[in-house]
Design a protein around this nucleic acid. Structure first.
Lengths: 233, 233
DNA sequence: TAGTGGTCTAGACCACGGC
DNA sequence: CCGTGGTCTAGACCACTAT
């Protein structure tokens, strides 16, 4: 309707979004088809399609051929977490970063990790323990198992200059992975690293990654007391 | 090249993705323009654009007018977490769900929460404490402040049948929010709720949500010992 | 100013899936 | 079957920005 002016898919998306939010179209209701909307907005069907596709990707509407487009009943709320390289994360806050290798050896995969790592017990892996510091204060304790066969050039790395965290991100691109967040009580070892009493509550992230061929690495990152991991919705 | 067949933007995306992953195009390198790629794949520029747009949204490439398209140097790894309604989460695992209201009152917003809630100290809020059970075992302890003025109909709800968690999701749609994950040591109260010793490490999620107008609710959800929150990459 | 990506159009064909 | 969304095309103009 009206005089064309600046029809853009963004404006159409926003208008459709308004109708969903303000319940002009009730949850579960069928909304007009692309052709009809294109007439209403005085634009090509392609343009309406672009707007509707965005809303569908966000989960606000559900689209099915022949059945049409409906307002979602329970729009799924999703949070996105961007996983930073620890050094960049620290430096982005204007703090200084350094790391230290506490341990490094080659060993056979412990039996209890076979499940998380999807590799047979006894596969040769590199085991590293790294401490990351923010302004010279303990920040993250990283314990990591890395699959030798999946990462060419791994043996030559001593991770003195570049941490395993950073080196792997840049040299062993992964195609998939999963993470788990949980709380642990500090072991004596960890308590010493963070200079707290044994038994203190620590926030831990466990992450395993793989590419198309094989598992790459399994890391357990334990954060300093009081750490909060933030994400936005 | 070749005979058209089934050129689709998905195939083009996958081929481009392969070239990025296998370093046919190095990180930081300039890749061919849309016109050139369209010629190579024997399709319209629009189709190539669609494929490139997807990769750009995923962060694998960076596009700028005039400057062209480059392979990202540090492709940001993102994890997506779908936030479930607690009841649905529990029932999806085949377990039984129930909840109990431990406390409910109307109070003025405590001063120390003003920062997290972006409301002036002294605003009237509903304070609720709810215990969620999985198979009759304590699962999540939920402490929540809800902004009266932002949620019509809140006063009439006693949350006996439907938990605050579920009711708010369906009746107070939010447009934004943020979350924080961290570990706490169990207070005496919490230890009693979960039947553990005070000082045990517990995993906590704090979430605040708002809509265009105002903050809606601030919830702190403390999980049973041993709980792991999972997400995939 | 010129080259690149961003968007829009009008039309077309196809795939899916209620009917 | 046939209506709906999904995609593709060829062409066009525009917005941004490196040079």
């Amino acid at each position: 309707m009206t005089s064309r002016e600046t029809t853009s898919w963004l404006q159409i998306r926003d208008e459709l979004l308004r109708r969903v939010r303000e319940r002009v179209w009730e949850p579960g209701a069928l909304i007009p088809g692309e052709v009809e909307l294109a007439e209403e907005f005085g634009c090509a069907r392609t343009t309406v399609n672009r707007a509707l596709r965005e809303l569908a990707e966000a989960g606000l509407i559900t689209r099915r051929r022949r059945a049409g487009t409906r307002v979602s009943i329970n729009p799924p709320h999703k949070a996105t977490l961007t996983i930073p390289i620890i050094r960049e994360d620290v430096e982005a806050r204007g703090a200084s970063y350094r790391h230290a290798i506490l341990h490094r050896d080659t060993r056979l995969l412990p039996a209890h990790l076979g499940g998380a790592f999807h590799l047979p017990e006894g596969t040769q892996v590199l085991y590293t323990v790294t401490m990351h510091y923010e302004n010279d204060r303990p920040y993250i304790h990283e314990e990591r198992y890395t699959h030798f066969a999946a990462v060419p050039g791994l043996e030559e790395q001593d991770f003195a200059q570049i941490s395993a965290n950073e080196w792997l991100v840049q040299n062993a691109p992964f195609t998939g992975g999963d993470m788990a967040f949980f709380a642990i009580t500090a072991t004596e070892d960890l308590a010493r690293c963070f200079d707290v009493a044994p038994g203190a509550a620590l926030f831990t992230v466990e992450r395993s990654t793989w590419n198309d061929q094989a598992p790459i690495t399994l890391a357990r990152m334990t954060h300093a007391p009081g750490y909060r991991m933030r994400m936005s919705l």
